[in-house]
Amino acid sequence: MTLAVQFTGVSRVFGEVKAVDRVSIDIQDGEFFSMLGPSGSGKTTCLRLIAGFEQPSAGSIRIHGEEAVGLAPYQRDVNTVFQDYALFPHMNVLDNVAYGLKVKGVAKGERYVRAEETLALVALDGYGARKPAQLSGGQRQRVALARALVNRPRVLLLDEPLGALDLKLREQMQGELKKLQRQLGITFIFVTHDQTEALSMSDRVAVFNKGRIEQVDSPRNLYMKPATAFVAEFVGTSNVLRGALAQRLTGQALPFSIRPEHIRFADDQPLASGELEVSGLLHDIQYQGAATRYEIQLENGQNLSVSQANDQWQAGAPTFQPGQAVTARWARAAMVALQDLAPGEGH
C-alpha cells in the first residue's frame, strides 16, 4: 500500500518556539487520519506543512512518494477545508466551487457541470446562485467541502471544519464526512481538538502534545491502551496514579491509568483475585444523565474519578452522600501501565 503522506523528522520552528518537533508519521492512502491535540500542540502546523502554507525548518515531507518541501500550495495535489471556510465573499456558491477548475483553465461549460455535480455530492444542488453571506454555517461548511473536492484531490485536509457548528449539526456532519470519505476513497487528514470527534470518525489518530506525537493508533487502542499519561488524560477521562500509591498497588514504580468507568464501588463480597481496592472520602457527585460521576479523595490526597452507568433503574441507584468514606475496586486487567515516569508531565 502506498503512503499518502510521509513525514520524516519534520520540525517547524517559529523564532524560539518549536511548533513541530521532529515528527515522523506515515499516513496510508485512503485512510481517515486524525491529528488530535490541544491548541498549540502543533497539529494545525502539520496540516499547513502538508498544504504548503508553511515550509519545514528540517526534515522531509513526501506526498504520494514525491518530495513536497519547497513546493508552493498550488503545485500540490492536496486541497484544504479551512476552519473559517474561507469562501470568496464576492463570488456566488457555484463560482466558489468552480474556482479550482477556473484557475486550472477548465472551460466554463465543463467547470459549471462539475461544480454542480460536486454541490450535489454535499446535498447543496440548487444553491449555486446564492452568495456565501446568504448561507447558514452548516451550508457554508458544505460549500467549503465541495470547493476543496472539485479538483478531485488525492488528499483532503480538514482544519477543524466542524468547530463552528452546534453539537447536533456537528454530529450529523461527522457521519456525513465519514460516509463521503468511504464513497470517494481518498485520504482525509482531519485536525481537531475534540477527542470524541477524532475517535468516532478516524481509522487512526495521532495525538499531539507540545509539537511532538505521543501516540499514533486506532481509536480503540488509543482509548484502551494509552501509551503515555498525556494520551490517557487527553483521550477520554482517566485516573493516572503515580508514585508510592502505584508502587503499593502494583508493586511497580511505573505510573498507570485506570478509566473511571472501569472502577466500581466495593460491595459486601470479599476482594476477588486479580482485583485491587483503595479507600477514600467521597467529595463530589455529578449526575451526567447516562452516568453518574463520583470524585473520591484518596489517602495520599490524589483524586480518583469513578463513573457508574445509571442502569440500576430497577434496583434503585446507590445512595451515597458527599463526605462518606467509600472503597473502590477494579480489575488489574483494566489498568494500563504508562511509559513516562516524570510526574506532572502532560497538561
Binding site: Y74, F82, A86
Partner: peptide
C-alpha cells in the same frame, strides 16, 4: 485564509 484558499485550489 482567502489567499491561502486560492493558492490551495491551484491559483498562481
Amino acid at each position: 485564509s482567502l489567499l491561502q484558499a486560492s493558492a490551495d485550489l491551484g491559483a498562481r
